[in-house]
Write a protein that binds this DNA or RNA. Sequence first.
DNA 1: AATGAATGAGCCTTCATTCAT
DNA 2: GATGAATGAAGGCTCATTCAT
Lengths: 211, 211, 211, 211
Amino acid sequence: MSEFQVTASVQTRARLIEAAREVFAQYGFQGATVREICRRAGANVAAVNYHFGSKDGLLGEALNFSGLKALQTDNLTADHCPEKRLRLFLQDFMLMLLDEKSASRQCRIMARELADPTPALDKIVSEAIAPLHEFLGRLVCEIVGDKMSAAEQLRCVFSILGQCSFYYHSEPVLQRLHPELRYDTGEIGAIAAHIADFSLAAMSQLARRTA
Amino acid sequence: MSEFQVTASVQTRARLIEAAREVFAQYGFQGATVREICRRAGANVAAVNYHFGSKDGLLGEALNFSGLKALQTDNLTADHCPEKRLRLFLQDFMLMLLDEKSASRQCRIMARELADPTPALDKIVSEAIAPLHEFLGRLVCEIVGDKMSAAEQLRCVFSILGQCSFYYHSEPVLQRLHPELRYDTGEIGAIAAHIADFSLAAMSQLARRTA
Amino acid sequence: MSEFQVTASVQTRARLIEAAREVFAQYGFQGATVREICRRAGANVAAVNYHFGSKDGLLGEALNFSGLKALQTDNLTADHCPEKRLRLFLQDFMLMLLDEKSASRQCRIMARELADPTPALDKIVSEAIAPLHEFLGRLVCEIVGDKMSAAEQLRCVFSILGQCSFYYHSEPVLQRLHPELRYDTGEIGAIAAHIADFSLAAMSQLARRTA
Amino acid sequence: MSEFQVTASVQTRARLIEAAREVFAQYGFQGATVREICRRAGANVAAVNYHFGSKDGLLGEALNFSGLKALQTDNLTADHCPEKRLRLFLQDFMLMLLDEKSASRQCRIMARELADPTPALDKIVSEAIAPLHEFLGRLVCEIVGDKMSAAEQLRCVFSILGQCSFYYHSEPVLQRLHPELRYDTGEIGAIAAHIADFSLAAMSQLARRTA
DNA sequence: AATGAATGAGCCTTCATTCAT
DNA sequence: GATGAATGAAGGCTCATTCAT
């Protein structure tokens, strides 16, 4: 094979993955069709099976969590108190979750996996969600110190994540209940600030109470 | 028409609805097949269209929010302070949401609608979710009084609902991360108590801060 | 069975036949559905099979040629020259064929049978079309006398019938080509007059030529 | 794509169109099934949708009026008087209409469309019937000149077309009434000659009368 | 290596008919 | 006698996948 062809093949693969992310995010795994993905990628109908073996295989490749990982490593290297770091992380995380940019697509695919798990969920959990839980767990631990049991700390992590994902999952509902709501940069910042306020207030109060 | 046939028809309808709830909850609206529903209901493939006109029509009938409504009316008639009533509601609500009983199936269907909205979502929003948001909105208002803006109160409602739905949406993830976790009555009670503690602590702190 | 019920049964039968004529005329035999016929007749879905054995059986009963027969017997008793009687017959016949009245429905069903014959066509031919051909055959014979061979006379009958049925069969086409065309009483009269003029002119000329 | 495959695809398409013409002509658009068409074409059930998008799309492709158009252009280039050209056209036209060759199938499909119009009728009218009416309109105009009003000329066209289509539409009836009738070349020629004689006689007489 | 053609299982739905009362 | 419920065969169509080059 000539080098030109190698490059063409690689580009086709890349376009397929990009198109798959769009279509999976928009229609879900079941609702997405191989034809539509190939159409958007400008590739042949058979390309998906050729490059990835199956629709399932493509889903596996389409998942990519580098953005989410970068968020965490950046946050860890910042020189702030844990409360401030939680605030900053929530700002970045909600922006990634709610902003109408490409980064949001993986989140959307992940969210769909929760409602309708496929074998790809295992990969998502081990590569993206487990590290995220651990990251937040350490942050909460730093904030509440030893004033809370491990089980309570875990539930605080869940409370924070629950608040975050709510705005993502409930978007179609919120659009109907509050049509004026728009996830623009300002609104997302306000949401993140509220989650930080709410959670930090709760944790400080609960930590004090236990003590 | 004989009384026997009326009964038979009603029973067939009921079996179809029950089967539909199972299958919709398990596979989602798209993934569910009329054949599987009819098979489980012991009815003919054509039964769904005969009784409900279409798969969509069956979905509409399969959705029933009487349990959720009862929760709210019961709570409103209770003679307690608003904080206590929030606690009690969360206990009932999380039990309905997480307990492995039939009531949970409507929730599962609703949850799937969020990830992949169908025309039925409008019905769900107007009949179930909107009243629930209003109910919690009034409760929060009673708790924080005039010490918080309406927008902040609304975000508190979202924070509460987000925490609740997290345990529901993330079940498959949590099963993988914490295989020892079981949603038995005791665990559900502890979760509900945590959400109440966390939220009440946050609200009291935020209300005080504003004041 | 009480006399009341007998009457009810007879009425249901009659309503079914009337509804069947409407629906067969509108949608054709294949396109017509038993459900729609029963709905219009205000009868049960099973009524057609109960009263007529099958959809085919209903078609047989729905066909009725009394109007067409009356036309011919009326014409035969009129005291006019054959040319005049042809004119009068064409006026009546085209009115029956084209006027938007109930009488037209049997014609429409018959016309559909020609394009898509069912077993009912045999009945139609023997009871309606054959007598009509014979009637016109005698009329043509009276007009051209012995100046034309039997084969030529037969073709003249065909030429007359062809002109008549054209306006019926081609209605959807003519509506598209000449949207201003309306089959009102005046237009139908003009059409019938033209067919009479055209055919009598042709026959007189051909008869003279042969002689 | 290899040349072999291109050829294979074209052949499959062609076989499908040919089979569709057979089946549509035999059973009508509604009565025809995609399965039967594919069976006759030796193709898969999905082939129709793959190649033509839908059953409707296939009908559109199955209609082809090149034969009819050729008839008219050939006739226009002939160097004869208009009466002679009408005679010649009727010979060709009736042969196309009645001869048991493939060309007849499009006519049969067209005839069915008249009794049970589908969206394809628009295409038929604009591409085949309208030009045919115009062609005959010009011929009639040449024959009767200015001795007849435009409305009368139009009715003469209808009288000619009515006679022609009668032999086509009424074939199942004529088979029952005159079982000895066969549309062989000789008979078709005699029919065409009769229509020409009848129509020219009528027109000359009517034109003279008006003058 | 990569593609257009073709596949067949499966989808929802429609329908004339039969069943049990 | 007459009906509402139920049937099952068949309809057009969609889809991920495989085939042949």
